[in-house]
Design a protein around this nucleic acid. Sequence first.
RNA 1: GUCGGGGUAGUGUAGCCUGGUUAGCACACGGGACUGUGGAUCCCGUAGCCCGGGUUCAAAUCCCGGCCCCGACCCCA
Length: 409
Amino acid sequence: MMDFTKRVRGTRDFLPPFSVKRAEFLRIIEDTYREFGFLPWDTPALETAELLTSKGGEDIREELYIFKDKAGREIGLRFDLTLPTARVLAENKTMPLPIKRYMIGKVWRYDRPQAGRFREFTQADVDIFGSEKPIADAEVVAAPWTALKRVGIQGTVQVNDRRLLDAIADYIELPESRRDEFYRAIDKWYKIGEEGVRKELGELEKYLDPFLEFDTDLVELPEPTEKISAAKSALLKLGEYLDDFGVRWTFNVFIVRGLDYYTGPIFETFVDRPTSILSGGRYDRLIGMLGGREIPATGMSIGVDRALDLYGDSMDLRAREADVYVAVIPGYEDVAIQISNKLRAAGKSVFMDVTGRKLGKQLADAERRGVKTVVIVGRETENGQVVVKDLDSGTQSAVPLDELLQKLS
RNA sequence: GUCGGGGUAGUGUAGCCUGGUUAGCACACGGGACUGUGGAUCCCGUAGCCCGGGUUCAAAUCCCGGCCCCGACCCCA
């Protein structure tokens, strides 16, 4: 006998009550993005292998789902939402700018699964295309940060800037060819500590002490060169806008994020663990690299599943499965359907029993589902009434049908 | 790719070291006591030793191989 119950490695099933919270979280994110004026986009999960590997060389294939279709073409699953979006912009060369868009969807990476890391996971992106101004970076941070705040998660956005890092690297005379290696090591500062970073750096360790002079508050950041001054004042401007948006942020010179993707401000958001749940930055060259005109771009992404895993318990999310449970006494199905429809038309979510099981079972079922209001549809309907029962208090009363809606509101 | 810990009903586990009744328990699920009133209690029920080989009179237990899961490293555009 084959085992048909196996899941693909690194994927997950989302079942209630978690799935209910997850859907609610996604709804709040989407509502917030809309409030900030971002419009929804959706692009295919499948892209050509050519695109997916375009900015990482051959070794990047190791981290991707790539396979051949029946015609022998190499295709793969997207690993983020930014690259497909950039492809669309490179392809549609006359879209009116600026564009503010969001996209919520699954992405796939052939990582080795472990705590907080899956091969299939959901991202909720916002991006602004067509503005190089810091106010755009600030807004793109503010929208997802606000969404998180609305569910009770107050993160601190750690801010750095690729131009600043490069300016510092110039100043401390870090060889160009070793910079990726250096950045990759210091990026682990909060994970493995100073000692770990020194060890990791090896012969590059001599550059660490001069670099550490820049581990300060932003206003106190030394300005030994013109380039550093310029990067600093850009960050100060950005910080001012973040303050205006009410975002909690801090400058952190150890934030690096990736290697060849970003060209300006970069962001990571932490709550109380060194695991980022909201991150992104500015990437002004990507669309040009894909063959489009150069369009300045900046974006952020919520790691939806990771945020739920780490902080779902403390999120302020509705967990109940429906607003009202309609318990149906056998023989009264027709009127139960009519009543359920009426409630739904008034905006209530309704779980109507369809099993015909006895009332005690239906009440237990309602409770299990976390629904606290039960409308019992039975013989009272012959007098134009239903019984409304509150499962929390245990109280109930017969209510005329035309008063049902106001009784429930 | 490297390393560590594990696989016993749907979930969590006891049993394994020291092989030997019908593989025990809890939760969950279905039904009943209670055919129009949930949370409590009681009763009944469904459901399990990852796969293959070896040792043995006898394997969940010991040995070998495989598969899978979890976690750490590497990496994370």
